[in-house]
Computed example of a mutant assay.
Amino acid sequence: MRILLVEDDRSLGQAVLSYLKSKQFSVDWAEDLQQARAFVATTHYAAVLLDLNLPDGEGLHLLPFLHAAALAENARPTVIVVTARDQVSDRIRGLDAGADDYLVKPYDPEELLARLRAIERRRGAQNSSVLQCAEVAIDLARESVRKGMSPIILTPKEWALLRVLASRPGQIFTRERLQEALYQWDASSDSNTLEVFISRLRRKLGSALIETVRGTGYRLLAQ
């Protein structure tokens, strides 16, 4: 698995680089946003370890470039924000901006390793799991969606819902189960929040793709 490490602290960056390489990961190291953008422009990464405080701007400014690269590669890397900022508001802002996970410094390298191995397992287990729903193709391994020939970009919250629905096409998922998928991003999520994100998915994927089962929940209709 290829990883992009974005870290401006040279001693920490070198330590993380050496550790991950000793665990057989392929790692590129960028010390600022400019270097990170150059790497993203030429290389596809399965995961990005992203510091927030960089010499030439905030790390979250890299996320639009990652999303643009996902369009070209038909794949989206998993972004783990790695930072000393430990406020809940910082975590929420990072996750809402498109990050997938959050790790607070200082951290145990074994914890980072466990998260990266979890990413590997998910990608490996779902390597061929492309679900065709009418003209929409959902690739769970690459976390990418195409409608016809056009790529569709989903937010992390939209992915959280679609991942559950696409895990068992045709099965009815209760509102409570789907709200659990949103709860990891926003502890205040309720039925109204769920309706909002179901509506967003329908606008992007097609109104007929997700069926409302009155009084119970929702299900994804697939071929």
Rank of each mutant, 00 (worst) to 15 (best):
N74H: 06
L103W: 07
L112G: 02
A141Q: 03
V81G: 09
S89H: 08
D90F: 10
A118S: 14
D56C: 11
E110A: 15
P156V: 01
L140K: 05
A137D: 03
S129I: 12
V79H: 09
L140D: 01
L140Y: 00
D108I: 02
V136I: 14
P151H: 09
D86F: 00
L113F: 14
A114I: 01
E110P: 13
D56K: 10
I152D: 01
I92L: 03
D108T: 02
L63I: 10
E120T: 05
E58V: 06
V48D: 08
I80T: 12
R123V: 13
D86I: 00
A46W: 15
L95A: 04
G57I: 09
L60Q: 12
A99V: 05
V136R: 12
V48G: 09
S150W: 02
H44Q: 15
D101P: 00
N74K: 05
G59E: 05
L112N: 02
L54G: 13
A70E: 11
C133Y: 03
P64T: 10
L71E: 09
Y102P: 05
Q87R: 10
S129T: 13
P77L: 12
L50G: 05
A141M: 04
A141V: 01
R91Y: 04
G124A: 06
K105C: 05
I80K: 05
P109W: 11
E110L: 15
V79L: 12
L71Y: 03
I92S: 00
Q132Y: 08
Y102E: 06
K105H: 06
A118G: 12
V145E: 01
G59L: 05
I119A: 12
Y102I: 07
Y102M: 08
Q87E: 10
V136L: 11
E111D: 13
L154W: 06
L113H: 13
L116W: 08
R76Y: 15
V88H: 14
L60Y: 15
G59R: 05
L154I: 09
A137W: 01
V79N: 09
T78V: 12
K105P: 05
A141W: 04
P106L: 04
R123T: 12
V81S: 10
I152E: 00
H61K: 03
I119F: 12
P77T: 10
A47R: 12
L62T: 07
R122I: 00
L54E: 11
G98D: 02
R91N: 04
M149Q: 07
Q126S: 10
H61S: 04
A141T: 01
A72E: 09
S150R: 07
E143K: 14
G94S: 11
I153R: 07
